[in-house]
């Protein structure tokens, strides 16, 4: 069956739908959907300085590609910069950093790099060697979020854009449900945060309503996917267990992930209201914002000291 709109050869069947689209109709569909999310949730406004968190993977490179196009169409009234976190993973992150450097150069966007080694004195490889039982992903998630917020604030960003897609969000919602961590869910959504605080740079997710497969298709069609490169520590994560579980359910009951996110979006305003009075302190050790006395990043730093 040809493309629904133009009878060209299809490249994708849209998830949760019978619609098949060719390359050019899919790109139009994808970009419209992302821009609709940006406009509906006011993710980006004129004179914003948007720092894009780039890992070098398909999601963040697609985001960089789309936002560059988006800003050009608005006469570059929005400033873009790129921030990459170097965890210090040999034969993995060093490769993607080189890819990002080339990409940023060709796009004329400044790349900033923040590293675990500079922040904690150790690379992730070294931490894992010394603390074999530590789950890399949970520690990494804390340090990455900490560095992204700290450095984007240093860069005077008004927004921090990430390549999170519908699959990522559905996983986070379910993970928080499984752990009865609803306060964390209140911080999710197309634009994160429960209340405004100058110490937190709002994180925006223009791909919030696009699936992982749609983002991968967009990346493939723009030649943004290099060889599959998997983090050597990612097997250990609870998130990947949830991801596989949701993919299995989705295959059997198409539309499940969309329903999880759509239901969540309906209750999100209530969650934000419930948790809006939660106090934001300054960490006793590093002065970064935190809900407790010592922030999670400092707890990790303390744990890996020895």
């Amino acid at each position: 069956m040809p493309c629904k709109f133009c009878s060209e050869k299809p490249v994708i069947q849209l998830p949760n739908s019978e619609r098949k689209l060719c390359k050019s109709c899919f790109i139009k569909y994808f970009e419209r959907k992302a821009i609709r999310t940006i406009n509906k949730y006011k993710l980006i406004e004129e004179n914003d300085h948007v720092v894009i968190a780039v890992s070098g993977g398909k999601d963040s490179l697609s985001l960089l590609h789309l936002l560059k196009k988006y800003c050009q169409k608005r006469n570059n009234k929005i400033k873009l910069s790129v921030l990459q976190i170097d965890e210090g993973i040999k034969d993995y992150r060093d490769i993607s950093i080189e890819d990002t450097k080339k990409f940023c150069k060709s796009f004329g966007i400044k790349l900033h790099i923040a590293s675990y080694e500079k922040e904690t004195g150790k690379t992730l490889d070294k931490i894992k060697k010394q603390h074999k039982k530590t789950i890399a992903c949970s520690m990494c998630g804390v340090l990455r979020r900490y560095l992204l917020n700290k450095y984007s604030r240093k860069l005077k960003a008004t927004k921090l854009a990430t390549g999170h897609n519908l699959d990522d969000e559905a996983q986070s919602i379910i993970m928080n449900q499984f752990r009865h961590n609803i306060a964390l869910s209140a911080r999710l959504g197309p634009i994160t945060g429960v209340k405004k605080d100058p110490r937190f740079i709002p994180r925006i997710k223009p791909f919030y309503f696009l699936t992982e497969k749609e983002v991968a298709t967009y990346a493939y069609l723009h030649n943004l996917i290099s060889k599959f490169n998997e983090c050597p520590y990612c097997e250990e994560s609870n998130r990947f267990f949830i991801r596989d579980m949701l993919n299995d359910v989705e295959a059997k009951y198409p539309g499940t992930k969309h329903s999880i996110v759509a239901s969540f979006i309906e209750v999100l305003p209530l969650l934000k209201k419930k948790y809006k009075n939660q106090e934001i302190n300054s960490c006793r050790l590093c002065k970064e914002p935190t809900s407790s006395e010592i922030c999670s990043a400092c707890k990790v730093k303390e744990k890996i000291k020895s």
Binding site: M1, K9, P10, V11, I12, Q13, K20, K23, G57, K58, D59, C137, D168, E212, K213, V215, A216, T217, Y220, L221, I225, F228, N229, E230, C231, Y233, C234, S237, R243
Partner: peptide, 24 residues
């Protein structure tokens, strides 16, 4: 070129299967 899973291959065809999941 991307193809859909309703495509019927010939015996001489060669296809690639690329994972879309993030590599961490």
């Amino acid at each position: 070129e991307l193809i859909l899973d309703d495509v019927k291959l010939s015996k001489e065809d060669r296809i690639s299967i690329i994972p879309v999941i993030s590599g961490g």
